[in-house]
Every structure is written in C-alpha cells, then in structure tokens.
Nucleic acid binder design. Structure first.
Lengths: 176, 176
DNA sequence: ACCTGAACACCGTTCAAGT
DNA sequence: ACCTGAACACCGTTCAAGT
C-alpha cells in the first residue's frame, strides 16, 4: 500500500494522541511510517498544512447537537460538544485555533445558526458563534498548556478545569 | 552594567515586538544582548520561565477600567482592555495563555470582582472572569495565528477581527 | 511518481572551564 | 558570581539523485 496524504494525517493524529504536539515532529512521524522525513513532503506541503488537516479531523469529531427545550440548553450542549472534541486530543486547542485561522469550517457556526433559527434569533447567531468558539478555544488552551507544564514539572499543583468551564459557560449564556 | 533577570526580560519583550515569537529564540536574544546563549541560563531557568515573565509584563500593561453607569458597560471595557493588552504585542495571546497556565495573576479577576461588587452580583464574578478571559484569549489566538499565516503567505485573504470581537463580546454580555 | 541521502540553517539546554 | 566554548540532541525543509 502506497503512502498517501490521508495515511500521513492518520499517523499524525495517532502520534498526537500518544505524545502531543511535542512528540509529533516530521522526523518522528517519518520514523513511525518507516520512511525518510523528506518523503513526507511529497504528500504534504508543510507541517502547518498537515496540522490544519489534523484540525479538520478534530473538528469533524464534534458530535451533533439535537433540539432541546430551550435555546440556552442547546447552546450549552454545543459548547460542551466543541470542548469535548478539542480537549479530546492533546494540544487540541492550539491545533484547532490554527485550523480555524487557516480557514477550516467551524461546525459551531451551523449548529448555532440552527438553534437560533428554531428560536427566532437568527441575527444573534454570528456573535454567539464567535463568543462560544473563542471561549472554548481560549479556556481549552489554558487548560492544555497547564497540563503540559504539569507533566514537565510534577511539583506543580493540579487544577480541575471542568467546573471552571461550566461556570464560564453559564455566565456566557446568562449574560449580565 | 551587569546583566540581570529584568534586563533579559526587557530585551525579550523588545525582540517580541519586532519579530514575534518566531524571532525570539534564546540565540537571537543572546546575540541582541551581546552574550553567549548559555549566559542567559544564569539569569533565567528556562525559555518557558522567561516567557512567563514576559506574560506578566503584558498583563500588567492592561489599563485599569473605571466605574461606568452599567455593569455591562464596565465588563465590556474590561474585555476591551484585556484585548488591547494581549493583541498589543505579537503572539500575545499564546504568551498570556502560557502565563495564566503557569499561575500568573489575572488582572481581569480583580476588575470583574470590583464591578460585580458595585452592582450586587459578587457570586457571578468567577464565571464572568472565566468567560471573559477565555473569550479574549481564544479569539486573540485565532486572530494572531491568522496574522502569522498571512505574513507567511500573502495570497491569503485578510480578515478584520475587530467587528467580530465586538459582536462576540456583546453576545457574551447579553446572554440568551 | 515516489522515495533516499545528504545537507542547510536552525533550535533549547548543559557543563566544564575560564575570569 | 558570571560568562565563554563546545558540545548534545534535536528541529523543518530542500534538492539532487536514485528507482
């Protein structure tokens, strides 16, 4: 079986799950595949492009959110689904931020629009999409960076970001 | 004048403003100071620690927010002030995320608490701090990553994040 | 078309040795 | 106490050459 763009991304994701971004160099990736590092550049233009493709996979793993009995409940579920996808892979926040910056489609946009349409608030969709996405990526980045610092220095105190995420999400949905 | 921890951070910040994180290696930093790279390690334990110190400077540059005639107006000003500080330096979002993850004090927390106290909503302060900080860092990261991609590839379309930030902030403050 | 081999121009960090 | 010199163990990427 010949090497392909898809299989390179597969292996990259595999390596990412095992050891995060730090363990996912073009060289370790090549070694895992059993090829010279330079061979990768036949299938992928750059590491950045590779990471963008990985980001698209991570975003595609976001589970769809079904209708609920309030707009807030649906938006909360969307935020939680994005968080699950992003924190489901080491350094997911950083990678997804790169992907979105590179122009990857944000599944949150469609989900939020569907919800807003159901509750007659279509005009609020863009702002809510930006708020929700930015919040999940931002807190996810802090959390995963904290995790990386902690594995480098076990003296560091652990922090549970779960409750903080929940409280921040409630605040975002409640407004002021 | 002998080298010091403070002067190393000064020069690091200077280099950061000129060329971002990509241009701020321990080697370029040493060259700028006129010393061998290894000399830096007498004044700073690691690059990570150096970046954390830089993050503290960036956060300290956040201008204080004065009392206004509504809680929403004050919180909006706090979000805008954090954004100004973070996007005021290249790759500021990434650096500040590292700093916060490392335990840097978040000036937003005090500001939000003061506002909430003024409007009898002290219990809402933690959630609002998390939401506001996460949102500003998350969108800032996307924006600055987009900027970096664009300087690497001038074919890429420009995106104005200003209005998007405003809309997201309004959505966050308005709730649903 | 697809891959190897070898190189280019970098990294962060350590550590003996100098002053 | 503070810095140099030299090395260690890495990076991403390019490109001629092979098949």
């Amino acid at each position: 079986m010949a090497l392909s763009q898809t299989s390179v991304v597969d292996t990259a994701l595999e390596l990412l799950r095992e050891s995060g971004l730090a363990g996912m160099s073009m060289r370790t990736l090549a070694t895992r595949i059993g090829v010279q590092p330079s061979a990768l550049y036949w299938h992928v233009p750059s590491k950045q492009a590779l990471l963008t493709a990985v980001a698209e996979r991570v975003l595609a793993a976001m589970r769809p959110v079904e209708a609920d009995d309030s707009a807030a409940a649906e938006l909360r579920a969307i935020g939680e689904a994005l968080r699950a996808a992003v924190t489901g892979v080491p350094d997911g926040a950083e990678i997804v931020a790169l992907g979105l910056a590179a122009g990857a489609v944000n599944p949150v946009a469609d989900a939020v629009e569907a919800t807003c349409a159901r509750y007659d608030k279509v005009d609020r969709a863009p702002g809510l999409t930006t708020a929700l996405t930015g919040y999940v990526i931002g807190l996810g980045l802090e959390e995963q960076t904290h995790h990386n610092l902690r594995t480098a220095d076990p003296e560091m105190a652990a922090v549970d970001f779960g409750p903080r995420f929940g409280a921040g999400l409630e605040a975002l949905l409640a407004g002021v």
